[in-house]
Write a protein that binds this DNA or RNA. Structure first.
Lengths: 106, 106
DNA sequence: ATCGTTTATCGGCGATATACGATGAATTCG
DNA sequence: CGAATTCATCGTATATCGCCGATAAACGAT
């Protein structure tokens, strides 16, 4: 995952509604757009847009089914973001620095 | 860290220039605004604004010194974001779900 | 074929973000 | 003192975001 992809994913997560959607999908093993609409004080078109953003960032998956489609959290993608941030922390000037703290030497 | 704080930090990280700044600070154990300006194709005032955003998100620290001030990465804050995302992944419907994968049972 | 349900897309508006140059404040150097 | 350095802030122009209502598209049910 390059820097551009990372910022795209971070941007996708950096919105209260979208973060809420991610949390909802994490709790409910996949649901449709309508289900998400019911949990948020937003119009259906707005939710659809948010889902699209998350989809383009590959943070969720989409399965077209009838009568309802299913959106699911892409755990791997979310985990990749988490680990990328972790890598930055680890990379942080090995040795005593950044406020005098040592690096994960446990 | 509540959801609002998390989205604020994610938003701060979700910009190419600011992510670059964070990476730079991670590599160079603290430096001034001017040093950052030298590494980016942006005006000094723009960089200063980006630093302010990162500062408000508490992702970096600022020590006013002369002749140069010093910005440093706040490792704990960045780590907190990483772990928060990790927690969402872990929370993801305990059991087989989300693409049929099991949850970190190692 | 028509209707109802579900979802995606379009157009537009207000708000926010991003960029820059200019300016000011604080400090150091000559 | 005056000049230079470093950085923050202001004002402003432009672009993007976020939201909505309206509409289109897809499809199952009647």
């Amino acid at each position: 995952m390059d820097a551009t992809r990372l910022t795209e994913r971070l941007a996708a997560l950096a919105h209260p509604a979208r973060l809420e959607i991610v949390l909802h999908l994490a709790r409910t093993d996949g649901c449709g757009c309508g289900d998400v609409v019911d949990t948020l004080p937003l119009a259906q078109s707005t939710v659809s847009q948010h889902l699209k953003v998350l989809l383009e960032a590959d943070l969720i998956t989409h399965e077209r089914k009838r009568p309802r489609s299913t959106y699911r959290l892409n755990r791997d993608a979310l985990l990749a973001v988490s680990e990328h941030l972790n890598a930055i922390v680890d990379q942080c000037c090995v040795g005593a620095c950044c406020g005098g703290k040592s690096n994960r030497l446990d």
